[in-house]
């Protein structure tokens, strides 16, 4: 076994082989990714945007669940590293014919894939794939169920570091549907590893998981109280289907109590920044004046996302 059984994303030298989750990643690896991404920010702003780090490598975007933004930014990142990119939307092809995840992956491996970018609706699917691919193939999790979305978490902490420089004196609030959010879990792990002293999660009791305090966060149900004096406000997307079930009463009531508007944002520190992983529901979790306001870093997040994905792909390919 070439992987470390205690942490299946690391090889036996403790280097990043797959990126499956931010939980349990050493701080040195997180910093390495952020620093490498920083060097790619320059590349993405150049006239000629390509570097040859992944030349000749085949990167397969295998998305068992629909996505536009994440898939596109992975594709751009891979192309800027000079890789060959193949996009597969599996939800409309093989699984509808009854093929299992592992069979799909075995077939693609036989096509000499070097890297799989995987999105799946079930938590843990990338772990399963990573366990069964050959030793030369790298797996990068592009979002699995409610579990993890590590590159999103990384680009969020990259944005925070970019604007706030240091994590060790920050107060960060994550607001909304924590229960179903792989983004929230990834942010929490990245922030705690990087030394952020106070993370708050804010939402109604129906959307906060049972044992979230075990991840080292403070729970608030009153958004005004939770936003007081924070440096960073991370808003989560509220899936449309959540507003129809028994978890919430309505989009309007959610917006009234947990939507971010200028008045609530004023409770945070004056220089607080606002993050959102997109796609936004304006008027459900965030008001347009905040989304487009001067404290919003939502669009820079997207550009940083490309640099982060370039960094992750080049690091795993080099290990």
């Amino acid at each position: 076994m070439w992987l470390n059984p205690r942490n299946p994303q690391l090889n036996k030298n403790g280097e990043l082989h797959h990126l499956l989750s931010l939980e349990g990643l050493p701080v040195e690896i997180l910093r390495q990714i952020l620093d490498t991404a920083n060097s790619f920010v320059g590349v993405t702003q150049r006239d000629v945007k390509k570097v040859p780090l992944l030349r000749g490598k085949a990167v397969f975007n295998i998305f068992f669940e629909a996505s536009t933004r994440t898939r596109t930014t992975f594709e751009i990142a891979a192309k800027r590293l000079s890789a060959d990119v193949i996009n597969l939307a599996i939800n409309v092809s093989s699984t509808s014919k009854g093929e299992s995840v592992l069979d799909t992956v075995a077939n693609l491996s036989a096509m000499q894939a070097d890297m799989f970018i995987v999105r799946h609706a079930a938590s843990g699917a990338p772990h399963l794939i990573a366990k069964h691919v050959g030793p030369d193939i790298h797996v990068i999790n592009a979002g699995d169920g409610r579990h993890s979305h590590p590159t999103q978490g990384l680009l969020d902490v990259f944005a925070i570091r970019h604007y706030k420089k240091d994590f060790t004196n920050l107060r960060v609030a994550i607001v909304g549907d924590i229960l179903h959010s792989r983004v929230a879990r990834s942010q929490i792990h990245a922030l705690t590893t990087l030394g952020c002293p106070e993370i708050r999660v804010i939402g109604p009791r129906t959307l906060i998981p049972a044992e979230i305090r075990g991840l080292g966060v403070h729970v608030y149900h009153d958004m005004r109280e939770g936003l007081k004096d924070v440096d960073v406000v991370s808003m989560l997307r509220l899936q449309n289907e959540r507003m129809k079930g028994a978890l919430l009463a309505s989009g309007q009531e959610f917006y009234k109590y947990y939507g971010l508007n200028d008045e609530k944002l004023a409770l945070a520190k004056p220089d607080a920044i606002v993050l959102h992983p997109g796609p936004m529901n304006r008027g459900v979790e965030i008001d347009s004046s905040v989304a487009d306001g001067k404290q919003s870093v939502i669009l820079p997040q997207v550009s940083f996302g490309i640099a982060i994905r370039m960094a992750v792909m080049s690091i795993v390919a080099g290990n």
């Binding site: 939980e23 938590s123 579990h147 993890s148 049972a210 044992e211």
Partner: peptide, 9 residues
């Protein structure tokens, strides 16, 4: 519990 919370199950 804590495992389902962490793993998002």
């Amino acid at each position: 519990g804590q495992v389902a919370t962490r793993l998002g199950l």
